[in-house]
Design a protein around this nucleic acid. Structure first.
Length: 299
DNA sequence: CCGCGTCAAGTTCAT
DNA sequence: ATGAACTTGACGCGG
């Protein structure tokens, strides 16, 4: 069965807007109130997903403001334990698969020990949030490999050794994705094989940072790395914008060409597109993934 | 109250 | 060597 999902925010749904603040205003009381608000917004997004039959969703890293900032120590997990339990029950009972994706400044393979340490703290925060929600290890954290630092082989080696320093519970959540500049899907698959972790194929990154082969070829190549339902990232180039810029909406013809090229439709497709849930629903309607079984599977 | 400059993070690339 | 870009909306200050 095909699942289509979207990332972090739901457009046009009341009560789902996340809030944040400037570091200079991040007092204890501000953090408590923003976190309470954001957990309510997350609940509204989950309920919306349930209403619409959306079973794949990326939780924003910004749910807990400055959660992994070195100067801020706010016991969010303890303070909101009952709220996390409620949200976790909602996720599990509805069968929504969630994920998280740390930002561009989280670099597990950094040369600087301080940068690496802060990145590990950030990865721990993401894992902790998924744990607080009581989700199992099929609910993943997506990482890129990171920087090159003038020596790709050494930087890949640093990624591997820093990864192996993480504890097992965190390692089992990590999946790695090709990026649009430095580490193409071939690199990522090699690293994934060496570490025994899943590889996420991103079609737009592959378009910008190629290593031969069609989307379908590489999706098939990534498939055996998964310990659970395979997931890919799908996006389209925004016309008239810089290479890599995500489109405002999904061009459905282009999406259907991609969909029809797949060898297997037993797949989770995370859309990265500006109109978020709108395009997710559009793609679901066009692929019958809003039903329990596709026509293909019924034949 | 509105408008717009600025924002926590690190690497890479352009100037 | 210095600074913008990345990606982005929203915060929040100044007028």
């Amino acid at each position: 069965m095909l699942n289509v999902g979207y990332a972090c925010i739901a457009l046009g749904v009341p009560g789902t807007q996340l809030k944040t603040c400037r570091l200079s205003n991040a007092s204890y009381n501000t953090l408590v109130s923003l976190t309470a608000h954001n957990l309510g917004a997350l609940e509204a997004m989950l309920n919306y997903n349930i209403r619409e039959g959306i079973r794949l969703f990326r939780i924003s890293s910004d749910i807990i403001p400055f959660a992994s900032h070195p100067d801020i120590h706010f016991p969010w997990r303890e303070n909101f334990a009952s709220q996390f339990k409620k949200l976790g029950d909602l996720i599990r009972s509805s069968g929504i698969r969630v994920s998280m994706h740390p930002g561009q400044y989280t670099l597990l393979n950094a040369k600087d020990a301080g940068v690496t340490e802060r990145s590990i703290v950030d990865i721990r925060y993401h894992a902790s949030l998924l744990e607080a929600l009581g989700t199992d290890k099929t609910n993943k954290i997506v990482l890129h490999i990171g920087g090159v630092y003038g020596d790709k082989a050494a930087s890949i080696q640093r990624f591997k050794s820093h990864f192996l320093e993480l504890n097992t519970d965190i390692r089992r959540r990590i999946v790695i994705e090709n990026d649009d500049r430095h580490y193409h899907i071939g690199d990522v698959l090699d690293i994934a094989a060496a570490l025994g972790i899943p590889a996420v194929f991103d079609n737009l990154h592959h378009q910008l940072n190629r290593c031969g082969g069609t989307d379908a070829y590489w999706i098939n190549a990534c498939r055996p790395t998964w310990d659970s339902r395979q997931k890919v990232h799908y996006s389209q180039q925004a016309r008239d914008k810089k290479p890599g810029a995500h489109s405002d909406t999904i061009d459905i013809q282009e999406f259907m060409d991609f969909y029809n090229s797949l060898s297997s439709r037993d797949l989770d497709i995370m859309l990265e597109v500006k109109d978020k849930n709108i395009s997710a629903i559009k793609c679901m309607l066009c692929t019958d993934s809003n039903k329990n079984m596709t026509k293909l599977e019924l034949e």
